[in-house]
Amino acid sequence: MTAADPARQAQPAHSPSPGEVASRAAEVRRNWLLSTPALTLLFLAASGPLLVVILYSVLTPGEYSGVVWELSGDAWYRVILHRDIFDDTVSLADAHLRIFWRSAKLSLLTTFVALIIGFPTAYFVATRPPQQRTLWLFLITIPFWTNLLIRTFAIMEVIRNEGIVNSTLMSLGVIEAPIQLLYTDTAVLIGMVYVYLPLMVLPLYASMERLDFRLVEAAYDLYATRLQVLRRVIIPLVKPGIIAGSILVFIPSLGAYVTPRVLGGGKNMMLGNLIELQFGQGRNWPLGAALSLTLLVIVMIALLVYVRNVSRSESRG
């Protein structure tokens, strides 16, 4: 009796009829059913593989490849530490750290250079008459029609010692001997900027297209010089595009594989190449898995730092 009381009291305030309950339950069921394909895909393509990678990173490498089902922390240990095979002295894994550093440095540089080139490009497209913009956007996306590998080899042709850049400079007498561009970090940088530039331009364009250019006029009217208009009005207003573009360029740059492989030669490895090495010649899948997860963590840290900085500068105004 006492237990039934609150239930009876609660009844009038909130009394769904049996039919209502049934229809709401049916709606919930239908919504779940409709999202099943997306959830399945998400699990199969993202969460599932990620779990496999996490699992492999704590197993023991098999003799020729694959893993032995035996728990081990060795792979994680070897991500940053190195044990000498002769005297067992432990030191930092210089080779790995250098590659981490090169990856971070080249990705940041790629993002920066893509922003420097992409910003005026997007501005140019956004200030064309509307009917011309589609054409310019179309032109920007044309490189996507060609396979990444082929585009990368094309860059190689351009910058190699006998390539068009060096031969032009030499015939003009600017340089006497060819500049070694290919197989350097610079080559990797050029290649990555070329490959990822559209990913910077498109989100930048999207936010610049929405920019009210009368605000630019208003700023000029209020004694702002060109540079001040850019700094005080345009950049703050297109910041969402800058953030989106930077993220879209930085993340794939960090894990780039083809570009550093082809243009950096064997020596200038980036994280992607290091990971590939462990699954291939290195035959150390757990280390490869641990390095993959390290990459994931670096990306997440970078994103967090970036987003926090941006929101702080925004609240500062």
Partner: peptide
């Protein structure tokens, strides 16, 4: 002279207030 060198200010039809500023 460019607009920023003229001691002349404008009240625009659309007001053109900066949306990111107070």
């Amino acid at each position: 002279l460019p607009p920023y060198k003229r001691p002349v200010n404008t009240v625009f039809q659309s007001y053109a207030l900066f949306p990111h500023l107070t």
